[in-house]
Design a protein around this nucleic acid. Structure first.
Lengths: 208, 208
DNA sequence: GTCTATACTCTGATAGAC
DNA sequence: GTCTATCAGAGTATAGAC
């Protein structure tokens, strides 16, 4: 049993490095081609390994994909978790928008991997959506509703307000090629988006 | 040459019906699985034909997909084209939002087909994006900028304003499973979205 | 731990009978 | 025009040498 690479203990530095290289390469390929569109050959080549060697570290293509999704879900909701009920409502929500847009800018591959999964009906993460995700959103929506009841921000359906933040920020990662094609050269989509979205939500949330 | 099914002339009713059944089935499968994820077997089964028979009507899998994309692009921009420079600015833009959301509700498969294509880098439609689409958006953005210069709607970067309409309306088609998972039962996402987006853009566009 | 060789399955496409 | 049979290639995964 010694030398089994999937053991969490006793992982050499090389093994950890290779596993990371595989996951990084797989993120590249899966996010660009979808699960079925990606091949182990492509992933192995990007990772700089042979295909059998890749399969020494992960038992199957599915396993690589599952590992990526698990890590993604683990981090993806942090910005929403950080929404603080004790903070100033508008500032809290604007900070959330900003953190979410930063994620799109800094981790566009993760965003596209997630989008691919949802587009295809979320077969592998449906449970997480209607479980952890729904619970978290319901909780934060209640906080927003509380702020609205106090008249501190505009009254808008909290769930859809959260959807709008997701849609607007993720659009810049998921539809990046379209955004750039339409804007043409000489633009910095994320910088412009940041200014635009800040204005948008500032206007939207101001109580009458 | 007689009987060649791809000829536009001399297409029997059965041929037209089969071609349509194939395209409809292909839309189902491509939009749900992506290009690589879809198989001709699946498409043929949904269409109620054998695989070789499908390939009698279309020369290849690629050809079916290309035909779908061509039809899609042809119709997808109609709502934006309808934006009338002579109309009342806010009403025109709200009508655009509504038409676009109607498209998401009535043609979600088309929306997901398009999203799949963009997500994967738009290899087959990049030309259309930076050509026809960019031209149309630039033209309409100029109209919006004109309205803003006259102080009739709020001053916001027109291109990003258009992106925000796309992002918000398409989200309800492309991320449908997530929206429903988070909302839970007893909701009508599109009806709620329509009210929400109308409020959102009404507030956003009002001149100070 | 990593490689070469290969087994086996799936899938796009074709041939040819009817 | 439609079907059965089949080919050729790609792709996942395994065996086994080193």
């Amino acid at each position: 049993m010694t030398g089994e690479p999937n053991r969490k203990r006793s992982e050499t530095r090389i093994q950890a490095r290779n596993r990371q290289a595989i996951l990084d390469a797989a993120l590249d390929v899966f996010s660009g081609q979808g699960f079925r569109g990606a091949t182990l050959d492509q992933i192995a080549e990007v990772a700089g390994l042979s295909k059998p060697n890749l399969l020494y570290y992960f038992p199957s293509k599915e396993a690589v994909h599952a590992e990526l999704l698990a890590r993604l879900l683990d981090n993806w909701l942090d910005p929403l978790r950080a929404l603080d009920p004790k903070g100033e409502p508008k500032a809290e929500l604007l900070a959330y928008v900003r953190r979410k847009l930063d994620l799109s800018r800094d981790y566009p591959r993760e965003s596209r991997l997630f989008a691919n999964e949802i587009l295809q009906g979320a077969p592998r993460i449906m449970e997480a959506l209607s479980g952890d995700l729904k619970r978290l959103v319901d909780e934060k929506a209640a906080i927003i509703a509380g702020w609205q009841a106090e008249g501190r921000i505009a009254a808008l359906p909290p769930h859809h307000l959260i959807f709008s933040i997701w849609a607007l920020t993720q659009h810049y990662a998921d539809f990046d090629v379209q955004v750039r094609a339409v804007l043409g050269a000489g633009h910095d989509p994320y910088a412009e988006a940041q200014a635009f979205l800040e204005t948008l939500f500032a206007r939207l949330l101001s109580p009458e």
